[in-house]
Design a protein around this nucleic acid. Structure first.
Length: 318
DNA sequence: TGCCAGGCGGGGT
DNA sequence: ACCCCGCATGGC
């Protein structure tokens, strides 16, 4: 599929904003090359934005078919990059945190990029009981195998698959996701069951209700549901607590009641804090992550020998 | 080789 | 409410 250039947008982010870090994090080579960040906005009608930094603005070249002209791209791009987001209070909360104090310093202006609910759920399921590299390799294979190739003025990229694409092709074994295949298919089914309007309502629900609704999918528990809502709707109050973060919090902060303790410590920023913990510790496996955190080595490595959240885009992992 | 890694649900108590 | 186990897969 080829998409043609439609128009350009120039957007002004709230300062401080770091386009490079924001685009780098948890991204793939076909969506970020070090300067251009390609953002799939809509599958039907197809629309992809090519964003890059332009002085103190974000420049967005919009590619799509004619049908896509009517979409409110400006609002979506602002939302995805968090251009209007104010992290002042978050920076105050983590400014002297032994794990996160680098966030308002070396990672100043970095925002979380959102993705749509379905894709966020896919990402979250792939993190279940898997190391960073295993989880993102599974995702990588899903995108390559089920996504569609797209070309924008010679730029080659991938449109991530929708639930229908997975159901129709029905060859998830090829992507080596193991027992998560069942959960992914359950999720895909739930997302195509439009009669009930199952997920159209999620946005309007309170955090607990949104979490409960996602958990109706078999194989989706509290961790997966919360991470999904953080990555798609910036529900930063939610704490996606897995064994990795639990272990870190017990040993580094000396917490016994991790859930309660982190909520007091990070207040309404638990979800964003959890996200940044993985970034500053380069998503190392727990033994290494603990060493790093206890040794005060909480600045992400620039080196690209092996993939980290910030350098994933520099590597081919599948 | 064997064991484990950012979960989860189902079975036991 | 808890505790414990199996579940695919790849990497060390």
């Amino acid at each position: 599929m080829k998409l043609k250039f439609l128009y350009n947008l120039k957007l002004k982010p709230r300062t401080p904003f770091n386009f490079y870090l924001t685009s780098s994090c948890y991204n793939f080579e076909w969506w970020f090359d070090g300067s251009k960040c390609l953002v799939p906005i809509s599958r039907d009608p197809p629309l992809i934005v090519v964003a890059q930094q332009h002085e103190d603005l974000v420049s967005a070249d919009v590619y799509g078919n004619e049908e896509a002209r009517s979409l409110d791209v400006e609002r979506k791009v602002k939302w995805i990059f968090g251009l209007d987001e104010d992290l002042t209070d978050f920076y105050n909360v983590v400014g002297d945190d032994p794990i996160l104090y680098e966030v308002p310093r070396s990672l100043l202006g970095m925002r979380l990029r959102t993705t749509d609910l379905w894709n966020a759920l896919l990402i979250a399921i792939c993190q279940q009981n898997a190391s960073f590299i295993q989880g993102w390799s599974m995702l990588c294979r899903i995108y390559k195998y089920f996504g569609s190739r797209v070309e924008l003025d010679g730029l080659r990229t991938i449109m991530p698959p929708g639930p229908i694409d997975l159901l129709e092709k029905d060859r998830l074994e090829e992507t080596k996701v193991g027992y998560r295949a069942k959960t992914i298919m359950e999720a895909a089914l739930a997302f195509t069951n439009f009669n009930s309007g199952f997920f159209d309502r999620v946005e309007g629900l309170k955090d607990e209700d949104a979490e409960a609704l996602l958990r109706e999918i078999k194989g989706v528990g509290s961790y997966t549901a919360r991470l999904t809502l953080i990555l798609s709707q910036r529900r930063y109050s939610l704490l996606p607590l897995d064994r990795w973060l639990k272990s870190l919090a017990e040993k580094v902060y000396g917490l016994r009641d991790v859930e309660g303790g982190l909520k007091i410590k990070w207040r309404g920023w638990c979800g964003l804090a959890a996200f940044f913990v993985t970034v500053v510790l380069d998503a190392e496996v727990i033994t290494k992550a603990l060493q790093r955190a206890l040794g005060g080595d909480v600045k992400p490595r620039g080196e690209s020998k092996k993939p980290t959240p910030l350098t994933l885009w520099m590597h081919s992992i599948c």
